[in-house]
Design a protein around this nucleic acid. Structure first.
Lengths: 200, 200, 200, 200
DNA sequence: CAATAACCGAGACGGTACGTCGAGTCTTATA
DNA sequence: TATAAGACTCGACGTACCGTCTCGGTTATTG
C-alpha cells in the first residue's frame, strides 16, 4: 500500500543506553514541521532553522539527529517500508490502470512533490546519494512491477526495465508538473500504452 | 535543430537609447560563467555572487540584466529558438527512434540537466513561472510532435497529448537520472513503445 | 591631558577610494554601544552580537571593521593620542600628587576599568598583542614620566623605570580594585612614596 | 610558605551521608584538568565543558561540585591556607627583599597569573565576589605585612595600608605583565622603595 | 561642446541561514 | 538516593549569500 507519512521516523541508528534518552516528542515535532514547511513554503524555504523554529525546538536538536537538511527531508518523505505500491489481482487489463493511478497519487503527495526536485539539486554533485534515494523509493516499485509481470507470464517486445522506466517516467513527470490533477485520465492513458505493448 | 548553448543571448528586451550602453562583453562573461558553474558545481553553488566573481563582473551588473538567479539561468539554458528538435522524414518506423534520441540528447546536455531541478525548486511556489519555462521548452517539442503525427495521418488509441507526455516524461526522467548514458538503447525502447501504440 | 573617550575612532587603516564608503554613523553607533555595554554589563556581556544589536547595526557590519572583539574594544577605550597624562610645572613636591591623581582618574574611567582585565584574558596566549596594548597606553606615560624626572635633574636611588613601574603598578591595581573611590588620598600616598625616594 | 597547588581540595563543604558517595577520583581529575587548562590554554579556553572533557567526566559532575567556573577556578588556584608568604627574621633591611621576591614568585605562578584577570572579568558585576577573592588572597599578606612592621616598631610617613598597597600593587602588576622574569631585580627595587620610606 | 544619463566596478549595508560550541538544566539508568 | 552521562534550550560565534545602495568614474547620446 502507498503509505501515509505520519510516523516520526526512528531517527538515527543506534540508541546509546546511558544518559538522558532523546525526547521522542522532539522527533515528532521536527518530522511534522518538516512536512508542513515543505508543503506550505517549498523546499527552499524549508531551512533547518525554520524547521527548528516551527517545531519549537533548538537547531542543535535537529543537527543532533540529522547531519543535513537533505537527510532529514529524505527520511521525512521516504519513511522506510512505505514506498512500494502493491501489485493487484493479476489481470493486466483491469489492473494496470489502478496500479498507475496509485503510483501517480503517491508521487503527487505534496511533501513528495516538494521534496524530489530539492533532493535532486542537493545531490547534484553526489550521484551516489541520489542513487540511495532512488533505491529507497523506486526499486521497490520496480520489483513489484517485475513480480506483477512475471505472474502474467508475458514476454514483452520491450525490455521490462525499459518499460517500467517509461511508465514511471511518465507518471513521475506528470506528478511533478501537475500533481494529482487529472490523475485518473492520465493513469488510464499510461496503462493503455503499457497494455498495448504487453499485448502486442 | 537541437541547439548548442554558446550565444550570450540578447539580454533584456528594449535597449534604452540614452546613457552609456551596456558592455556586451559583460553579457558574454555572465552567460559563460553561469553555464560553467552550473556544469561544474551544480545549481546550488551557482550563486549570483559566484557567477559575478567568475565572470570578473560586479554583482549589480548581473542584477541590472536579470532580476533573479532563476531568470538568468532560465535564459542561459533555454535561449529562445533553440529548443525544438526538428521533425524528420515522415516514416514513423524509421523516424521515431532518432527523434527520441535527439530529445534525450538535448535534455542530457549538462547545463540543462543541472538547471531543471533547480528551476523546479525555485518556482515551487510560483507555478505560472514554471509554466513559462515549460512553454519555452516543451511546447515547441509538442508542436513538432503533433505536426509529425499529422503527417502520418494516424489516429492513435491514446490521445496524442498523453502519448507525447508519456514519451517526453520517459525521456525527461531518464535524462535527469542517467544523462546521456545508454541513450541510444533507451531511445529505441521509447520509440518502440510509441510505435506500437501508433500501429495498434 | 587625560582624554575623554568620545570620538568614533578612525576605524581601520586605509580608506579605499572605490566602492560605497562606510557610513560614519555606523562607526559612531558601534563605538558608543561598545562603551555603554562595557560600563553597564561588563566585558563578558559585551558580545559582538550585543554591540550590533544595541548599535542598531548588523553583526557583519561590525566584523567588517574589526576582526575581533578585542580589537574593537582596544580601539574604543584607547583611541590613539589620548593616553599620556601631561607633565606639570616641574616642582616635584607639588607636581607628583596631581600627576598620580590624573593617572588614577584616567585608569578609573569605567570603560577602561572594564576593558583591561578582559583584554588581559583575551591576549593571555598572545603576549605580543598585549604588549601592543601596553605600548599604546603605558609607554606614553612612561615617556612623560622620564621627561618629567629629567627636568628635575635628579638621580634616584632606584632605576627610573622600576620607580615608574612601582608608581603605575600601585595606581593600576588601585584603579582595578576600587576605581576612583578615595583616589585623592591614595594618589597622595603614592606621590609621597615616590617623592621620598627621589629626595633620598 | 607559598604553597604548591597540587591537592584536589576538599570540594564542597558537607558530605551528604545518604545515597551513592562521590567518586573522589572525579574531584582529583577536575582539579588537575582545571590547572592544566589554565596554564596551557588560558582562562577563556578553560571552559567547564573542556575541563569535563579533559577530566574524562561529564559536565553535570562539575556543576554538582561547583556552581560556576569562577568558583571552581577560585578554589583551584587559591586553596585555602596556602596564601600568606610568611614573615621573616625581623630586620627590615635584609628581610624586605626576599619577602617581595616571595610574593612576586607566588603571583607569577602560571595558574594564578592565568586566573586573576579571568576572575576580575567574571566578577566585574559582582564586586562582593571579587572582595571575597581578595580576602582569601590579599588579606593574609596584608596581615603578615602589618605584623612584620609592628615587630620593627616603625611609624612610617605613609599609612601602612597604603604602603602595602603600593608594594603589592607594584608586584601584582609586574607579575601580570612579566611573570617571574627579572623578579629578583624588581623585588629589590620595590624593597628599596619601601625601605627608604620606612627609614625616612 | 557641454549636459545628461546609463553604465561600470567596488564595496558597504541590513538581513538571514549556516553549522558549531559553551552554558546550565533535565531526565534516565546505574550503583 | 545520589551519581554519571547525555539530551535539552538558549544564545553567541564568525561566515556566506541575499538583493540594495552609494560612490567615483566612464562612455555614449542629446541640446
Amino acid at each position: 500500500m502507498v503509505g501515509a507519512m505520519t510516523e516520526p521516523a526512528p531517527a538515527f541508528e543506534e540508541s546509546p543506553r546511558v544518559g538522558r534518552p532523546r525526547d521522542p516528542r522532539v522527533d515528532v515535532a521536527i518530522h511534522r514541521a518538516t512536512l508542513e514547511l515543505l508543503v506550505e513554503d517549498g523546499y527552499q524555504a524549508t531551512t533547518i532553522q525554520a524547521i527548528a523554529r516551527r517545531a519549537g525546538v533548538s537547531a542543535p536538536s535537529v543537527y543532533r539527529r540529522w547531519s543535513s537538511k537533505a537527510e532529514l527531508i529524505e527520511e521525512a518523505v521516504f519513511p522506510s517500508g512505505l514506498l512500494a505500491p502493491e501489485a493487484l489481482s493479476g489481470d493486466v487489463i483491469t489492473d494496470l490502470q489502478p496500479y498507475c493511478e496509485q503510483i501517480l497519487t503517491y508521487l503527487s503527495e505534496p511533501p513528495i512533490r516538494a521534496a524530489i526536485p530539492g533532493l535532486l539539486v542537493e545531490y547534484q554533485n553526489d550521484p551516489e546519494m541520489w542513487q540511495r534515494v532512488v533505491e529507497r523509493s523506486v526499486t521497490p516499485m520496480r520489483s513489484s512491477f517485475r513480480a506483477y509481470l512475471a505472474k502474467t507470464g508475458r514476454e514483452p517486445a520491450v525490455p521490462i526495465d525499459a518499460l517500467f522506466d517509461v511508465m514511471l517516467g511518465a507518471l513521475f513527470t506528470r506528478a511533478l508538473n501537475d500533481g494529482a490533477a487529472g490523475a485518473k485520465e492520465f493513469a488510464r492513458a499510461v496503462a493503455k500504452v503499457i497494455t498495448v505493448v504487453l499485448q502486442q
